[in-house]
Computed example of a mutant assay.
Amino acid sequence: MIVRIMGEGQVRLADSHFPELDELDDELLAEMEAGDGAGFRRTLHALLDRVRELGTPLPDDSLEPSELILPAPDATLEEVRSLLSDDGLIPGR
């Protein structure tokens, strides 16, 4: 799957990594619902860090369509909320 981190670029992620990422996504969603700003920030950074670590970066000039778009690391809680589906940032797989 091709994943874009807004403001950074794209990575290719194997489907086998999504169970781990789904756990972080669930944690992020719970923190957002609880209004836990510090937890939200910590978990958003953890999620994006794992995507960077597990993914293979695509060249900057690559024009692959992104199947999943994740917010920038400095996104606000409100900006992330606008990207959410019922399943969080990462739709159920």
Rank of each mutant, 00 (worst) to 15 (best):
D26P: 00
S85Q: 06
L84Q: 01
P57Q: 13
G88N: 02
G92T: 06
I5A: 12
A46S: 13
E31I: 00
L24T: 02
E67V: 05
R42L: 11
E8I: 08
H17D: 01
L70N: 13
R93Y: 15
L48C: 07
E8F: 10
I69W: 05
A34D: 05
E23H: 11
L63G: 05
E31F: 14
E8C: 08
D74C: 03
R41Y: 03
D87W: 10
L21Q: 13
G35Q: 10
L44C: 06
I90W: 01
P71E: 14
S85E: 03
E23C: 04
F18D: 07
D87T: 08
E53R: 15
R41C: 01
E64Y: 13
S62L: 05
G37S: 09
L44T: 00
L13A: 04
E8G: 06
V80I: 04
G7I: 03
G35I: 10
L47G: 01
D87G: 03
G55F: 06
R52W: 09
F18A: 11
I90Y: 02
P59A: 13
A46H: 05
D22R: 15
D74R: 07
G35K: 11
A72M: 10
G37W: 01
S16P: 00
P57V: 12
P57K: 12
P71D: 12
E27V: 14
V11K: 06
S16Y: 11
S62M: 05
L47F: 08
M6I: 09
R12Q: 15
P59C: 02
M32Y: 07
A34G: 00
E78F: 08
L44P: 01
E78V: 08
V11H: 09
S66C: 10
A75T: 06
M6V: 08
E20S: 13
D26E: 15
A34R: 13
R81I: 02
F40Y: 15
R4V: 00
M1K: 04
H45T: 06
G55E: 05
E27F: 11
L63M: 09
I2S: 03
T76A: 11
L68K: 12
E8K: 06
L70G: 13
R50K: 15
G39W: 13
I5Y: 08
V3F: 13
P71H: 13
L21F: 14
R42V: 05
P71Q: 14
P65G: 04
G35V: 11
L54V: 00
R42M: 07
D60R: 12
S62C: 11
D25C: 01
D74G: 03
P19Y: 02
L54R: 10
A72I: 05
L47R: 11
D36H: 14
I5P: 02
I69F: 07
L58G: 00
L21Y: 14
I5G: 07
F40E: 04
M6Y: 02
L77K: 00
L68M: 12
G88Y: 09
D86G: 12
A72K: 12
D60N: 03
G55C: 08
P65W: 10
Q10L: 15
E53W: 07
V80P: 04
A38V: 07
D74T: 10
T43Y: 01
G7Y: 11
S62T: 04
E64I: 10
P73A: 02
H45G: 04
M6L: 14
A72F: 09
D87L: 07
S62G: 00
R52C: 05
E31N: 15
I5N: 08
L77A: 09
E33C: 02
P65V: 08
S66R: 03
E8P: 00
V3L: 13
L54A: 07
